[in-house]
Design a protein around this nucleic acid. Structure first.
Lengths: 199, 199, 199, 199
DNA sequence: TATGAATGAGAGTTCATTCAT
DNA sequence: TATGAATGAACTCTCATTCAT
């Protein structure tokens, strides 16, 4: 009845739809997830969706933003407060605990929509910026030998880390068992400042 | 009378459609790739597709099989004939040269169709079996310290490698520059037998 | 606010689509009647059909049920309230007044779909049960000499009547002039309890 | 190799295709019977069809003509040579022995195509002419009281008979057991010259 | 805000037909 | 004559979206 409860109600509806969308995207992909399937799982009719989102693209954008924000606001500060040698563990553990692991999926779909939608382009840029920046901060602060590497080489390591995490994420989505230890193996290998690339 | 026999003609049509499908899948994904768009790019009408494939699922299966076979028949033998320390480079170079990098994409789509189609399940099993087996052979032969690792740990390394490669593949699809050197960085780190996992 | 409630509106749409389907089926048959042609004739778009029916098969089922119900609820009670000697006239007149005469057609199509669809099988059973039962009641009540015939023979007469009516129906559909009098001729001949079959 | 064997070969192919078409039409209807299904059942590829028929419509026409001719050439002469009181039995027995009973079906399909195709119109006219004429001859020759009836009334009886036979045919196609005796019951009733129509 | 009937573009698929072999 | 690859129109059905309620 109050103005506040209205806003809260709206927020609740949005969150439920985003939660449902997360599941349905994981199961059927973005294209295969119908608005009906999503709202039905959230316990609403399709009209509720269009009262809260302009279209399906916006759903993808807001879902992606929510996932980035969760990491940036909840995990990153914790990790940065730890000594460098413990950060990798914390992050690896958090990454391997995310269910369902749809980050890669969302990124692929955003990439496809990029050219048609400026909002998508902005979100996608923000996603990558946030990811590479986070990794760089996790990795590059004093204490780690990597901080002294030339910028280009350090960037190379960051990309390698993101590749490893992204791939692990995807493998998990495909049903391959990837636990935190395996993720650490990827990260640790890349993070070894003395690691000599064969070539 | 004809330059090409009927069987050859048929084979040519199939290959052209598979080539076109590779491109259109990379651009729009499996669900977003219409049969029309694929056959038009291949220079045929819609019906040509149904003369050569039973349905869209079969297209996905055959495309995936072709990509696995290409690696198994063309690259793997070459790599195995090299000394261990050069194999990683060869494979990394080959992987980063594949255009478009749709392996991850295909795997995700196959995984979605798995439950509905026994052929898909078989193909998917074959994909993973081939990949993990190839990596294990590339990595495990004598000369590399990894050959002496316990089976479970070696498996962990293999998964980590596949994760790295898969992720790099996906990043490339997303427009991130990932060259052979970055890939080697991922692989080399994981392959270091003395690499100590932090945890 | 509205003149009609939602449920009423929905019912109206269904009835209009069923009416249109009746006509288009009569003209082009079940297979030849496209959803587009039906909904266009009803004054709706294609999608309206799928808001109200799950698929084309359901349309056939519901149309058939409507025609049976119309007879069972409107004509049969009237006929049974008449003395036996007037029933045949009433029924014959009603049968020859039905436009378009698609009962036979619907039955043939249902028979084709029977094996693939349990709903169809149930409807078809219900159709025949209703028809043979109605005819038996029309014919068999006291006053008619047929009531005393052995069960098997009476069944034979019922089948013969249905055959005559069905055939007349079909001939009308084919453009042959079949009026109520001709129908009565078929029925009366079969209904003569003293009629001796030649063999 | 000889000219004669060629013609014979062609004839054989046609007959086999017509036989196969009879079965497939009975199972799936005209629209539901694909050229592929028909030629496959006949043991040919679809090309054989187009070497012997101009299109699907011609198949329907020729099939119908074959069935009429079979009756006119094989059964009618036999029946006419019998005394009137035995003719009904012979015809009823022959009618109830035809498998599959698709005459009604063919007539319905021809009627649908009538407006678009002069050949179809001619065939359909010929079908009805042949049927009504045959029945009239079977029934009307001296000895039967019907011969003396006014022309209009006699025509009415003929239509009633055809309706009965057509309906019986259709019921058989729908799986209802209709034997020769039931058919005779229909025919005999209508043929009773003293039968008084109720109205 | 939420509902759900209706819209209509677009998808996968079938199939009569053509034509080079 | 018979084959079968290829064509393309037409069909059933899905689904993002609109809008009156």
């Amino acid at each position: 009845m109050t103005r506040r409860s209205r806003a809260q109600q709206r927020e609740l509806t949005c969150q439920r739809i985003l939660d449902a969308a997360t599941e349905v995207f994981a199961e059927h992909g973005y294209a295969g997830a119908s608005i009906d399937a999503i709202t039905a799982r959230a316990g609403y009719s399709r009209g509720a969706f269009y009262s809260n989102f302009t279209d399906k693209t916006e759903l993808l954008i807001r879902l992606t933003q929510r996932r980035i924000d969760t990491f940036a606001e909840q995990e990153l500060p914790d990790a940065l407060s730890l000594p460098p040698e413990e950060r990798v563990q914390l992050v690896a553990r958090w990454l391997s605990a995310q269910e369902p692991p749809i980050e890669s999926l969302l990124a692929v779909e955003l990439a496809r929509l990029r050219d048609d939608d400026p909002d998508v382009a902005a979100t996608l840029d923000r996603v990558f910026e946030a990811i590479f920046d986070s990794v760089d901060r996790l990795v590059g602060i004093q204490g780690s030998g990597l901080a002294e590497l030339p910028r280009a080489e350090r960037r190379e390591r960051v990309v390698a880390i993101v590749a490893g995490v992204t791939g692990a994420n995807l493998l998990r989505q495909l049903g391959v068992a990837v636990d935190a230890r395996t993720l650490e193996l990827v990260l640790t290998g890349v993070l070894d400042p003395d690691g000599e690339v064969v070539a």
